[in-house]
Simulated assay, not measured.
Amino acid sequence: MQMLLLEGDDMNQKTGICILLCLVLLLVFGIWYQKRGVENTKNTQEQYASETEHTVLTGTPYKETENAYIIRTQDSRLVVFLPDGKTVYMETGIRSENLSQKLQKQAENGIGFADEESLFDFLESYSS
């Protein structure tokens, strides 16, 4: 009888160790998976911002005849003008300091957008 109890204790100890190892592996996997998700999200956001900036920087410079909308800096905020460059289409709450240095300089002269979709894509990427 005594021998039977010792074998049971040994089995309980092995089972406990296996359960503990499984929990540790799950914890390590969970941490790895979470870090991977955060990095992917961060990379995706950086890539989108980079693509948006690239589109604007390589897009059309301000020319009245080609652009449906022009964004310019006015009182440290971005303001959207119609093609004439004088009529305000929309005032945004976006501060020019939220833009990169290149975009800040471009916004002083005017950043042109061919259509409303590209305009709102740009504004959405810089609004909070």
Rank of each mutant, 00 (worst) to 15 (best):
T58S: 08
I17H: 02
A49N: 10
D75C: 04
W32A: 12
M11Q: 09
L26C: 15
K35Y: 07
T52Y: 01
S50L: 09
V79G: 00
A49Q: 12
T58G: 03
Q13F: 03
V80K: 00
T60P: 02
E64N: 11
R77K: 15
I31T: 15
L20P: 00
T65H: 09
P61S: 05
V56C: 04
G16E: 05
L25Y: 11
E46D: 14
G8N: 04
K35M: 08
G59Q: 03
H54M: 11
T60G: 14
I17L: 06
D9V: 08
T44L: 09
T60M: 13
R77N: 15
Q74T: 05
N40R: 15
T55V: 03
E66M: 03
T58K: 07
Y69W: 07
N12E: 04
G59Y: 01
Y69M: 02
Q47S: 12
G16T: 05
L21Q: 11
L25F: 12
G16Q: 08
E64H: 11
Q47I: 04
T15F: 06
Y62I: 07
G8I: 04
I71M: 05
L25H: 07
L57K: 11
L78K: 05
E51N: 15
Y62H: 10
N67W: 01
G59E: 02
S50M: 09
H54L: 14
I19Y: 04
I19V: 11
P61K: 07
C18W: 07
I71S: 01
M11H: 03
D10T: 06
L27W: 06
V38L: 15
K35H: 08
V79P: 01
Q45Y: 07
G30F: 09
F81E: 01
G59S: 05
S76L: 06
I19C: 02
S50K: 14
N43K: 13
Q47P: 01
L57C: 06
V56P: 00
V80N: 00
Y62R: 13
T65G: 08
L27N: 13
I31L: 09
C22R: 06
V24M: 12
N40Q: 12
S76E: 14
Y48Q: 06
G37N: 12
S76G: 02
E39S: 14
Q34K: 09
V79D: 01
F29Y: 13
P61Y: 08
T60N: 15
T52P: 00
L27E: 09
G30T: 12
Y69H: 03
